[in-house]
Amino acid sequence: MFFEIEQAPWQVSLQTQGHHICGGSIYSKDIVITAAHCFFTEDGQQLLAEDFIVRAGSAMKNSGGTLVKVVAIQTHEMFKITNFKYDIAVMRISEALELTNKVQTIPLAEKNPARGTPAFSSGWGFSSLEFNHVDGSVEFVSPVNLQGVRLQINSADYNGMVLKIPKDVISAGSFEQTTCMGDSGGPLVVNQQLVGVVSSGPEWCDGDADFTSVPYFREWILNTIESI
């Protein structure tokens, strides 16, 4: 469903070369929390802070709001692009954002939500499939307007299999209610607190997704903010 930015005023679009690649969440006026994999190419090359900008305060990924340069990035020291563990990052932007009804900070949750807890996530990830009648291919459609999805914290996947979920990961979503490519780095929110960061999910975005647990990495996040 379409979201207005006032419904998720902590949401930002992380962009490189004029294109949206990931979401992020405003923790303070000059700190954004996102996923580590957003800063790596598919072949494992890490990009520099100067390669990125952030758009804040707009539900449109390509217009409106405020564009701010990224000046520092710290990905988790244990992150590897090959397995997406420790998929958390902090970045500092070049100037303090002005807080309005469209730009707000979000606090860090202190504990993982219980199974069955309602949550929601937002972003500009692929939202639908489009069938190409010419060659029979199926393509994902990338929205311009911010999307939002209501999720449930999982104890099982959509096939009913019980999940053994590590404490550094939160599983949420279902077959038709989930995140997709382009949502990476964006927020998983419970009770107006940031509990997770969009990390990964099934190839066709047709099941539960994995979110990096903010409570698990809370101390790392706070220490990193002090150091960058």
Rank of each mutant, 00 (worst) to 15 (best):
residue 1 M to A: 11
residue 2 F to Y: 08
residue 5 I to E: 03
residue 6 E to M: 06
residue 6 E to Q: 13
residue 7 Q to L: 08
residue 8 A to V: 06
residue 9 P to R: 08
residue 9 P to L: 10
residue 14 L to M: 13
residue 15 Q to F: 05
residue 19 H to I: 12
residue 22 C to L: 04
residue 24 G to M: 06
residue 25 S to R: 11
residue 25 S to N: 11
residue 27 Y to M: 06
residue 30 D to P: 01
residue 30 D to R: 07
residue 33 I to L: 15
residue 42 E to D: 12
residue 44 G to T: 07
residue 47 L to M: 10
residue 49 A to D: 00
residue 54 V to L: 05
residue 59 A to V: 03
residue 59 A to W: 06
residue 60 M to F: 13
residue 60 M to R: 14
residue 63 S to R: 15
residue 63 S to E: 14
residue 64 G to T: 08
residue 64 G to H: 08
residue 65 G to W: 06
residue 66 T to Q: 10
residue 66 T to H: 06
residue 67 L to V: 12
residue 68 V to P: 01
residue 72 A to I: 00
residue 73 I to L: 01
residue 77 E to T: 08
residue 77 E to R: 09
residue 78 M to K: 15
residue 80 K to L: 14
residue 81 I to P: 00
residue 83 N to L: 08
residue 87 D to Q: 07
residue 93 I to C: 03
residue 96 A to H: 09
residue 96 A to Q: 09
residue 97 L to N: 04
residue 98 E to N: 11
residue 103 V to N: 06
residue 103 V to H: 09
residue 109 A to K: 04
residue 110 E to N: 15
residue 111 K to A: 07
residue 114 A to G: 09
residue 116 G to C: 05
residue 124 W to N: 05
residue 126 F to A: 14
residue 127 S to W: 01
residue 130 E to D: 12
residue 130 E to L: 12
residue 131 F to E: 10
residue 132 N to I: 11
residue 134 V to S: 13
residue 137 S to V: 09
residue 139 E to C: 10
residue 142 S to I: 04
residue 142 S to W: 05
residue 143 P to K: 05
residue 145 N to Y: 06
residue 145 N to H: 14
residue 148 G to A: 11
residue 152 Q to W: 03
residue 158 Y to G: 09
residue 159 N to F: 08
residue 160 G to V: 01
residue 162 V to E: 10
residue 162 V to N: 06
residue 163 L to C: 02
residue 166 P to N: 07
residue 166 P to W: 07
residue 172 A to T: 03
residue 173 G to H: 12
residue 174 S to G: 14
residue 175 F to Q: 15
residue 176 E to C: 12
residue 178 T to R: 07
residue 179 T to E: 04
residue 180 C to G: 09
residue 181 M to W: 14
residue 182 G to I: 10
residue 183 D to K: 08
residue 184 S to V: 07
residue 187 P to S: 11
residue 190 V to P: 00
residue 193 Q to E: 12
residue 195 V to N: 04
residue 199 S to R: 09
residue 202 P to N: 13
residue 202 P to Q: 14
residue 204 W to E: 15
residue 209 A to W: 13
residue 213 S to I: 04
residue 215 P to H: 05
residue 219 E to T: 02
residue 219 E to V: 00
residue 219 E to K: 09
residue 220 W to H: 05
residue 221 I to H: 04
residue 223 N to E: 13
residue 225 I to W: 02
